[in-house]
Nucleic acid binder design. Sequence first.
DNA 1: TTCCATATCAAACGAGCGTTTTATACGTTG
DNA 2: CAACGTATAAAACGCTCGTTTGATATGGAA
Lengths: 225, 225
Amino acid sequence: MPDVTASTVQHNLSQAELGAQTRERLLDAAERLFAEQGFAATSVRDITAAASSNIAAVNYHFGGKHNLYNAVFRRRMAAMREQRIASIRQARGESGTLEAVLQAFATAFLQPLVDRGSGRLLVELITREMLDPQLPRELFLAEVVGPVNEVLAEAIIAATPGLPPGPARLCVISIVGQLLQVAHRLRRGELSAGWGAELPPLPEMVDQIVRFSAAGVRACARGAR
Amino acid sequence: MPDVTASTVQHNLSQAELGAQTRERLLDAAERLFAEQGFAATSVRDITAAASSNIAAVNYHFGGKHNLYNAVFRRRMAAMREQRIASIRQARGESGTLEAVLQAFATAFLQPLVDRGSGRLLVELITREMLDPQLPRELFLAEVVGPVNEVLAEAIIAATPGLPPGPARLCVISIVGQLLQVAHRLRRGELSAGWGAELPPLPEMVDQIVRFSAAGVRACARGAR
DNA sequence: TTCCATATCAAACGAGCGTTTTATACGTTG
DNA sequence: CAACGTATAAAACGCTCGTTTGATATGGAA
């Protein structure tokens, strides 16, 4: 990567285009740093240095560090939500079994964490935001968590005869809790489970959660009858 | 509460006794504030103000903010671990069913969060530490998480014929993940589950997790055979 | 009593933070 | 061309942070 700074890029751009370019560099740098270190631990100086722009650029273009954080999320939230919902819906449409739905969701949830690439940053941002919220509470919940959980709950209900909506939503909490816990351990880079044992590779991890959760969901359906 | 400051307490104490008293006030104040706001968001000035002592007291008595945090944990970790282990062992000894073990652990895990009192602070500290570790990694894991998880895994194995140790430990991760997720939502004071639904009262929450997890554990035992 | 270790205190230090100011360069527009 | 608005730049502002300093009081030991 040639480390192109703002002063070395092509000079035949309009000012507006240059501004937009700076804005994107700031968003990219902020996304990476917020994901890697969290909101509080990332300074505006870190971001502007990584984006090869001036310290004042964050306040000029976004009106403050917090607004920049919001903008980082706003840029990705829609795609994030749609990708997760699509993967649930696809599994529901194809075979429609409970296991297939759970497997699709768990994989969509955890896979980007293991892959290298930009998807990983996104998931790290999400898990950080869920564990230590910085956004206006309603924003992330309403835009991503709520809709995705709702679609997952519907898919689980459809795949599980006799499961009422209430218990289904509690099951979703149980499932998301497991996934966040695993995601958290993966994110911390500790393949050790923290007490001697090691975390197995992802597919086995997903299988474990699918088996565990499918049985849990069905037990809730029986219990609620 | 009469808001007793250091200068108003009895003057017939030795200097060493006065120092120990200050140290305890600092530990109490730090425990409360760290639990309520987290490590980074709590300043030394907050703590010393709450403890009615001087700013320099933290560095004088503990050698820094971080060492104070460690001391807060060190004071409680042993009791914490023993209480959880005892509650698992008791359930294992009494009826010994999988459901009883899970119920005992889930209750021991979540009950202090709902209760008023000092136990609540402790659990808040733990969950914060698990989600965003500030301690030397090995300390908390080795002192609390590891032993408790190990005892829980053993109890689950004993209650579940045919469950090998490996899957049992993964089940423990699944169970702890669910509990942390619920604890996190309880801690944030959001009775709303974040997407419309509300969290039911604790006993039903525990029942849900017990039913869900017992079925999950048994499914793992069948799957591993 | 004299000395010393301990504990407390107000004050300040130095660093980092998010943000603001002021000035400059430059494409766009009248 | 001249005037304007936009983008960037360096510097500084005001604040909070964890920590350190140096002075002061005080109970116990020589």
